[in-house]
Structures are given as C-alpha cells and as structure tokens.
Nucleic acid binder design. Structure first.
Lengths: 220, 220
DNA sequence: CAGGCTAATGTCAGCCACTGACAGTTGACA
DNA sequence: TGTCAACTGTCAGTGGCTGACATTAGCCTG
C-alpha cells in the first residue's frame, strides 16, 4: 500500500482494470459524439464498436444496450446526487434536502462525470435525450427508480415506516418539478449548466405559488 | 342518411371499416391474453399474428410496435380522461378539475375501453405494464405527453400564456401523485378498480399534508 | 352486375439490436 | 515460466421492424 502517488479516488487495481476503464470511457465518448453528430437512431452499434476498434460483442459486454450507453453520463450524476443526499444534515426537511443535494450535484458536475466526458458534451447528450423518444422513455424509467431510492432514503431520515406514502408523494412532486425545469431548459436557447440550475431554482420557487394561488387574480 | 337504425355512437362506415375494427380488437385481445399468460418478452409478434390469423406484416400496419398494442387499452382511458377534462366546468380550479376528470374516467371505465376488452383483462394488463420494465418506460413517456396536453388545456382554461410554467408544475405534481397511487395499487393485493380509485383519492388527500407538515411531530 | 379503382393484406428480403456458444488471447499470480 | 481466469473475437441465430411488390377484396360507377 501507499506505493502509488498522485491519484485521488479509486486506485486502478492493475493493468487489466485500467484497460477496461479506458475501453468503457472510449465507448461512452464515441457513442455520445456519434449520437450527437448523426442522431441516436441513425447510429448503429457496429459503428460505435468500429470507432473504438472493438467487436460489437464487446460493446454489449460493457453495456446492456444502446440506451444504456446514451444514459451513461446521466447515470453518473444520479449516483452523485444520491451520495450527496445521504450526506445532507438530518435537520433539513425532505424538500430542502433534495433541493440542496440536486443543486450541489450540478455545482460539482465536473467531479461527477469525470474527465473522459467534457461538460459541454454531457450537456449536449442531455439535450439529445430530451429530444429522442426512445431515450426519453428510458430516462423516465431510470428516474422512477431514483425516485424510489430517494423516497426510501427520506423515509429513513424521518424515521418513517416503509409503507408510509408521504415520502413517495414528496419525491414525486419534487422530481416532477425537476422534470419541468429540465424540459424548459432543453427548449430554451441557453444550454449552459448555469441556465439549467437557474431554471431549477426558479421552478422550485414557483412551485408553492403554483399549487396554492388563484392564478386568475392578478399576481400579488 | 338516416337509413341505419338502432346504433349508438360511431356508425360503422361499411363492411371494410367494420372488419378493420374487428381485426384491431382481436389483435389487442389476443396480445393482452398472451402477454398475461406467458409474459411480455416471451411473447413474439409472430405468435400474436398467428393467434389472430393475420400476417406479421399486418400486425405492424395496425400497431407501430409491440409496446403500442400492450398500451392500447390504457390509451383509451387517457383519451377518455382528456375528453372529460375538456368538459369540466370552468369554475373548477386546476387540481379540482383534474381530480374530477380522472375519477370520473375510472368510474366510467367500461364505456372507455369498450366491450372488446373486459374490465378484468384491462386491469391485469395494467398490472402487466407496471411489472414490465420496457412497458413502464413506454408508459411513462406516454404519460409525459398526456401531461403536456393537460397543461396546455389548463393554461387555456385559466387564460394563461403558454410560456407560464405554473400549469406544467401543477400537472407534474398531480400526475406524480397518480403514479404513486398506481404503484401502490399494483403492489397491493386488491386488484379491483374500486381499490385503485380509493388509493387515488387517498393519495390526493394526503398530498397537501405530505408537502406541508412536519412529519416528525406526532400526527395531528 | 361487370369491371375498374383503391384500400387492405400477404410474401419476401433485409437491417439492426441483442444473445449464446465456443475459441483465442492476454493480464495475474504462484 | 507456466497455469489459471478474465477478457475479447467470431459465428450463428432470434426477434422486432421496414420497404417493395404482388395479390386479394370491398367499393363505386355506368
């Protein structure tokens, strides 16, 4: 131990492991670039494999399907947010904790997705997802799983029984708001991370009013 | 005109149109029965086509894909709810109108899905969807489209600009609650329509408290 | 009611995502 | 260094889905 110098998180286990990591990252990068350049459907797995110089079979040993590689960098963020959520101080109320975890997640985007996928590529891949029906579907399913984990986390934080529906309701509302923000962002023209973050904050802030107020009376 | 007697809604245009309708219904029925009996993935399109005695190619002329036929009876309900939503009196607030439209939709399930698909078959198909990852994904995507239409409807009702995010936020929250209710239902053991309806009402009723209350203090 | 028009269907060939089986290659480690 | 296990490539096959073209069958007009 302690032999290696200048590395941060996970020390590469050996040559084999390092090569695998490299192949994986190359596949993600090549996939995203091809998807963005020519569209998701119009890109075949053979093309991706060829670009990375591996066989098609190898591609499928790294990813369960074409969808998975398209959502790969998105998954990194979700994992990151989950970690941050677990680290939230227990005094924070559920909504507050989720809000802080998500915002902190986007503020540290770079660390979340690693060096192999530049931030701008990641953002364009997000855009790709939002504009490709097959990927929208896959993404929503993954989000549902995330929601369930978040609800379980919150139930634990608050000391509630697993059957209590309130955490699930709160999480459903929260991620509904996030989805609206994501959609607004993808339809706007400022594709920066900052713009997305601002939209998230704005959507969260107008959620309360949106639920309570009488929209027909002139705004307060 | 006026020659035909004793028919209700859409007068069958002729023999050709009637046969198409019949084929379509037979495909939906056979699909659902096969899916339920042996699972969605383990059922091939060839099997379905064979059961109805049409070619595989014909199947794909009626449905864009295997997913679509699995969601067919679900789609009927969504269309029905949309209609009911449009008929809601304008005095109702958005949440109220959505709630009433959805509940009324389930109360008139029979009329919505027609005779070709019995209610119990429909409910089991709903269960199938909730337990099949590929169908969950497809269903969530369709729900998203429904949400957008609902938001547009509400924006119009309330006389709001299309860019106002509040209708979208309200709809997102509402359908988040509905999804939770659907999930609770599919995981319970009472698979009746009544049970689903009750869960929807219960979820809607506990939504307010779930958002506002301090869950840690003993319930009021 | 014959015959042409057109919509609906069947047949065939082919693409692409994905998988199992088997063989070859290459790090790991005694 | 040689053995083992992990990783990769090749091949053959299944199933969803599509375009092109031929065939059938309701429809409509004279």
């Amino acid at each position: 131990m302690g032999l290696r110098a200048g590395l941060r998180a996970g020390p590469p286990e050996g040559l084999r492991e390092r090569k695998k990591q490299l192949t994986r990252e190359a596949l993600v990068r090549a996939s995203l670039e091809l998807f963005i350049a020519q569209g998701y459907e119009r890109t075949t797995v053979d093309e991706i494999a060829e670009a990375v110089e591996v066989s098609q079979r190898t591609f499928f040993r790294y990813f369960a399907g074409k969808e998975e590689v398209a959502l790969a960098s998105q998954s990194r963020i979700e994992a990151h947010v989950k970690t941050l959520m677990r680290a939230r101080p227990p005094e924070e109320r559920p909504f507050e904790a989720m809000r802080n975890a998500v915002l902190a997640g986007w503020d540290s985007l770079g660390e979340a997705i690693g060096e192999s996928v530049p931030v701008s590529l990641h953002m364009r891949s997000y855009l790709l997802i939002e504009s490709t029906p097959a990927l929208i579907a896959a993404h929503l399913r993954r989000s549902m799983e995330l929601e369930e984990e978040m609800a379980a986390l919150i139930a634990e934080r608050e000391g509630l029984d697993a059957s209590d529906p309130r955490p699930r309701l709160a999480v459903a509302a929260f991620s509904g708001v996030m989805k609206v923000a994501g959609r607004l962002w993808s339809q706007g023209d400022d594709l920066s991370v900052r713009a997305l973050r601002d939209l998230m904050v704005a959507s969260l802030d107008s959620f309360g009013p949106a639920m309570a107020a009488d929209w027909r009376s002139p705004a307060p």
